[in-house]
Design a binder for these strands. Structure first.
Ligand SMILES: [Zn+2]
Ligand SMILES: [Zn+2]
Ligand SMILES: [Zn+2]
Ligand SMILES: [Zn+2]
Lengths: 132, 132
DNA sequence: ATCGCACACGTTATAGCATAACGCAATTGA
DNA sequence: TCAATTGCGTTATGCTATAACGTGTGCGAT
């Protein structure tokens, strides 16, 4: 999905996520935008819905949070599954993909005639700094 | 983790999950156990916490639900990451592992010196029956 | 025996995450 | 102009999960 120009709310939410140094919950985003007129969760969720659709934001299912895409330029999402490593101590997220993993999972689903729509890979643990 | 004898509440929750033909939310489990004296969410969550610890139940992060382990005998979880394919139409879940996927992800984390604690792989889509 | 501890349990309250449903305004394209 | 689409704001509600407190029971150490 290519991203059209963002609306005001979408741009505000995206900006907050870009500036953050880690994933944010929808309600945290809401709090950061109260000064800009945001009053209700739906304003955030509606913007997030579009940003996810455009592929510029990812949702981390295992921690109910959202993060700006780390690969804004290359549209790597069009050719593979995105995986995340999430540090449970400092909150930092690393985004990557591995075509071999994609391939293996696709092989499995094909064998089962399962039609995959959306795949989540999230590794929780400790980043190098926090594990030391 | 090896499973000691289950307490009454743990056994009740586990039985509900075993009999279900798909994942259940904690609150759905609660409703199914009201006749057995369950009154509050914590009774379910506390039992689930132990069942997860024992490895006889899995949590599906992407849909906030719980499912009985499909491989009760082989303790396959001790030697690999568990992956799930979840049908978004009928709710059926298939549980599997792929050592090559584990290997690739472990390679990546080792390269980044990331200490993985818990990895989630969930494929949402349509099962063979529902996709037809 | 009884003390101390660990653990399961029950209850109430609260926190955190997400969506339904209504109505209005601006845009677009037939 | 009219209809359809999209974004927006508001209120209310629903779903998911945990905090905090207290009770009872079993069991080993003293
Ligand atoms: Zn990305
Ligand atoms: Zn860290
Ligand atoms: Zn299992
Ligand atoms: Zn199905």
């Amino acid at each position: 999905m290519n991203a059209p120009a963002l609306t005001k709310n979408q741009a505000l939410v995206f900006e907050v996520l870009e500036k953050a140094d880690g994933p944010l919950s929808a309600y945290t985003i809401l709090d950061k935008l109260r000064d800009h007129g945001f009053r209700a969760p739906l304003q955030v969720y509606r913007a997030l819905e579009k940003l996810l659709e455009y592929g510029v934001v990812h949702r981390l299912e295992s921690i109910n949070a959202f993060v700006a895409c780390a690969h804004p330029d290359q549209n790597c999402h069009s050719h593979g599954i995105v995986a995340f490593a999430i540090c449970e101590s400092c909150g930092h997220v690393m985004e990557f993909h591995d075509h071999e993993v994609d391939h293996r999972l696709m092989n499995w689903t094909r064998g089962k005639k399962f039609k995959a729509e959306k795949t989540t890979i999230e590794i929780r643990g400790l980043c190098e700094t926090c594990a030391a």
